[in-house]
Design a binder for these strands. Structure first.
Length: 571
RNA sequence: CGGGCUGUGGCGCAGCUUGGUUAGCGCGUCGGUCUGGGGGACCGAAGGUCGGAGGUUCGAAUCCUCUCAGCCCGACCA
């Protein structure tokens, strides 16, 4: 394509609302524009990258024997009612009504619809099946953010496996695990597979593919020594042994006027490790106490995973007061018998503890958790902290901010059962297949690459997904020899299958160089009178800025080789 | 949903506190001349319901009320 006829609206300044690097650069580079919060229009450049990312994914899915489908984006309510998710998905599902009053949803994911198709699987001989699509998903996110990283409408590659037994599911899962690693490698992403919480999807196991980035929304615990990697939503760490303070026969109360926080109580000689933090939550409607060590954060997701609770929300101050008789800051579980009490494992065997007395401005010391508190359930609900020891090898863990680039789940038989899927096995017995589900957000992957591949001048696309692989920058378009050479190279490179962009705009060279760098084309060939006189053209690599003089007649071969090498990265 | 902030030509901003001619500036855009290897110079020009509605006032971008939209933090979230 000729730059002069392309729509590439680059901006010198990023819009004020764009904060994440990928957001700023994708808008500045003319790849996309926002229509509303969470909805972006892909411009020609952005759509090319999007399609190339999708193509990489498609190739690797095909390589593991998966078959591509395309399912409807809009689904009748009945499909979702069958699995129970019509209600459980809540406000995150976009819903609409047709002219006849029929209820519909815009699909957030496609387990139900694929499972419906799988009703036509009849025999164990039909299994396994690996099905996928690249289709638009709609999610009424409470807070879209960071450009393409969290949106309400986006393309996702979602695949689903159907197997007769757990061994088969393991195989399908492993195939995806490997395919995902190849996909991310080809995209130039350093994606780490980590143990994850399965959240609302349910199922027995799930692995997230995480790319370290400040723009991410997840924290991951990583052990450099043994390779342990887990989302903090389920990460564990070894607990440093704590020596209990001397205990007494019974808790003793003491006045703590105005003391409302762990920190101020610590200043009075009660270190956080010797405090019991008491949180009050409404868990599926029931007021519930959650106890943690004073210095440990509460991770709601761990609690949800451990209890199967659907709704976990902090209790309101007035309901806390009427239930416990005190306000937050003076709460404790000693003597509480009418509310369910969950205690974090880190409190086991702890004595000489300090906690609230359920009387404002009074605390208790000398508390022996197991003796003095009627704990109903011991659970692991604490968030681990950076630097804590790895549970498997003892080396310090690092907690890193990451973007979730992919997520794969072992779903089990939940959806197949709900939709009434069964096949006959070799003995003629009816069996419910077990499913897996596997997702990669295409736009998010694209933004993640932008997030991790840029410099102060703009984007730096890997060859595999660059909108164009080479740009021929004509320094002076009214110099006939320059244009003639450029046109020749353009034709030859196109004939060789290279995605080449001819910058034939009548503009200042500085502007054209800056645009080429902002847009992130991996290679630039500069064509101007100066080079033509010497018979050598300057070839510049975007990633490292390296400039090579190449004889005019060798430019095509040079570029073709470099493009081929770039495309092969990660394969 | 809670907290914070912002809406003024395509993009970035000033003006608002203290109401008063024709709403400015930079970038970009259009025409022209000179230019031409890192966002060039000069001349000329186009482009704005000041997010929207209501109100106060002789007079509102500016003050008040409501509302919509967007961003950030948190909650939430395959």
């Amino acid at each position: 394509m000729r730059w002069s006829s392309l729509f590439i609206p680059t901006l010198r300044d990023a819009p004020a609302e764009a904060e994440a690097a990928s957001h700023r650069l994708l808008v500045r580079g003319g790849f996309m524009r926002q229509l509303q919060s969470g909805h972006y229009s892909m411009l020609p450049l952005g759509w090319r990258v999007h399609q190339k990312v999708a193509q990489v994914i498609r190739e690797e899915m095909d390589a593991i024997g998966a078959q591509e489908f395309l399912l409807p984006a809009m689904h009748a309510a009945s499909v979702w009612q069958a699995s129970g998710r019509w209600t459980s998905m809540g406000d995150e599902m976009f819903r609409l009504t047709d002219r006849k009053g029929g209820e519909f949803a815009l699909g957030m994911t496609h387990e139900e619809v694929f499972a419906t198709l799988s009703l036509e699987l009849a025999s164990y001989r039909d299994l396994p099946q690996l099905w996928y699509q690249i289709q638009w998903k709609f999610r009424d996110e409470p807070r879209p953010k960071s450009g393409l990283l969290r949106v309400r409408e986006f393309a996702m590659k979602d695949s689903y496996s159907f197997d007769l037994d757990d061994a088969g599911l393991d195989r399908s899962f492993d195939l995806h695990h490997d395919a995902y690693q190849r996909i991310f490698r080809r995209l130039g992403l350093d994606a780490v597979p980590v143990e994850a919480s399965s959240g609302a999807m349910g199922g027995s196991a799930s692995v997230e593919f995480m790319v370290e980035s400040d723009a991410g929304e997840d924290d991951v615990a990583l052990c450099a020594a043994c390779g342990y990697a887990a989302n903090v939503e389920r990460a564990t760490a070894a607990l440093e042994p704590v020596e209990n303070r001397p205990s007494s026969d019974a808790p003793e109360s003491f006045d703590t006027p105005g003391v409302r926080t762990i920190a101020t109580l610590a200043e009075l000689g009660h270190p956080p490790v010797h405090q019991v933090k008491t949180l009050v939550y409404r868990v599926d409607g029931a007021l519930t106490l959650v106890l943690l060590r004073g210095d440990h954060p509460f991770l709601e997701q761990k609690f949800v995973d451990a209890t199967g609770a659907v709704e976990v929300v902090p209790a309101e101050a007035d309901e806390i007061r009427s239930a416990l008789g005190a306000s937050p800051g003076s709460l404790g579980a000693v003597g509480v018998s009418d509310l369910p009490i969950y205690a974090d494992e880190a409190l086991r065997g702890r004595s000489g503890m300090t906690t609230g007395a359920n009387v404002d401005d009074v605390h208790l010391e000398g508390v022996d958790v197991e003796r003095d508190v009627a704990v109903d359930h011991w659970v692991d609900v604490r968030g681990i902290l950076d630097g804590e020891a790895c549970a498997s090898c003892g080396e310090p863990l690092r907690v890193a901010r990451c973007i979730e680039a992919g997520h794969i789940f072992k779903l089990g038989r939940k959806y197949a059962e709900a939709m009434g899927v069964s096949v006959l096995d070799a003995e003629g017995t009816s069996r419910v297949p077990t499913m897996g589900s596997y997702g990669i957000g295409v736009g998010r992957a694209m933004a993640t690459v932008a997030e991790t591949h840029h410099d102060e001048n703009g984007l730096v696309w890997p060859m595999a997904i660059a909108p164009y692989e080479v740009v021929l920058t004509v320094v002076k378009v009214d110099h006939d020899d320059s244009m003639a050479v450029a046109e020749g190279l353009y034709d030859e490179l196109r004939a060789a299958g290279v995605d080449v962009l001819l910058d034939d705009r009548d503009g200042r060279p500085g502007v054209k160089f800056a645009d080429a760098e902002l847009v992130g084309i991996p290679m630039r060939v500069t064509i101007g009178p100066r080079g033509l006189e010497s018979g050598a053209l300057e070839v510049t690599t975007r990633a490292d800025g390296e400039q090579t003089d190449v004889a005019v007649e060798e430019v095509v071969a040079h570029v073709v080789d470099a493009v081929a090498a770039g495309r092969a990265v990660g394969r």
